[in-house]
């Protein structure tokens, strides 16, 4: 029986067009991520890592190609349809944490649940949020504002927020980029634990040490998968 891919990208291209020039960020990327995978994507600056992650997270639209999440073609959905999928199937962890300063830790984590339709009850939200904060050992900081926390703590809150919606896949963008090595290691250990517990992970990183922690290591070069042959063989 063929294993169903959680994520499937077929010949994805992304071209940025300005008045002066066209920049080909991705030149026909093919990619499959399966349930329980821990995939790292690395490559030199400008190879298209961030563009690929933005497309994976439906934060941006491809110029051409087909993109399927759990078998559903999401390449040409409307803004709101893409928002729904981001909310229900994707969890994000950003390099810059991207927490909202005006909201408390609890409210930051609760955000994805507040976008749910039909609306979740306050009690259900509270249970889910506290559960996730427990997982990242931050349940004692629910009333704090992000700027009252250290970088490592903020990233743990961001992980809790990414997990709270029970996503199909967690997309992680340079999770240690803004952290010192001690906090970086702690965050990476937490991600490894999550993967062991069954969470599918796709991470963009510069750091070969952290890239090696993934089961599958993909390399991008000039907008193409460098290990494409191996991938094709696998397919």
């Amino acid at each position: 029986m063929t294993k169903q891919a959680k994520i499937q990208m077929l010949d994805i291209k992304k071209v940025f067009v300005t008045e002066e020039m066209e920049t080909h960020a991705l030149r026909g990327v093919n990619l499959e991520i399966f349930d329980g995978d821990y995939v790292s994507i690395s490559g030199p600056s400008g190879c298209g890592k961030s563009s690929l992650l933005s497309l994976l997270g439906l934060l941006d639209s491809p110029t051409s190609g087909q993109y399927l999440i759990e078998g559903q073609d999401v390449s040409s959905l409307s803004i709101n349809e893409r928002a729904l999928i981001r909310n229900q199937k994707i969890g994000f962890i950003f390099q810059a944490f991207n927490l909202i300063d005006e909201l408390s830790v609890f409210d930051n984590v609760a955000l994805p649940l507040r976008y749910r339709e039909p609306a979740m009850s306050a009690q259900a939200i509270k249970t889910k949020v506290m559960d996730c904060l427990e997982k990242v050992q931050m349940s004692h900081r629910t009333s704090h504002k992000p700027n009252q926390l250290s970088g490592g703590q903020q990233q743990r809150i961001a992980i809790a927020r990414a997990l709270v919606g029970d996503p199909a896949i967690l997309l992680v963008d340079e999770p240690t980029g803004n952290l010192d090595s001690k906090n970086g290691d702690a965050v990476m250990a937490m991600l490894a634990e999550l993967n062991k517990a069954g969470t599918t992970l796709c991470m963009v990183t510069h750091d070969p040490r952290y890239a090696d922690m993934a089961q599958r290591r993909l390399h991008l070069l000039d907008g193409c998968m460098a290990d494409e042959l191996t991938f094709k063989e696998a397919v």
């Binding site: 997270g57 928002a83 981001r86 994000f92 927490l99 909202i100 955000l111 994805p112 976008y115």
Partner: peptide, 16 residues
């Protein structure tokens, strides 16, 4: 704008 981007990245619909 950045904050709104975060809301949208986390799945907030345009109506929200």
């Amino acid at each position: 704008r950045y904050e709104l981007g975060i809301h949208m990245a986390l799945g907030a619909k345009t109506g929200f």
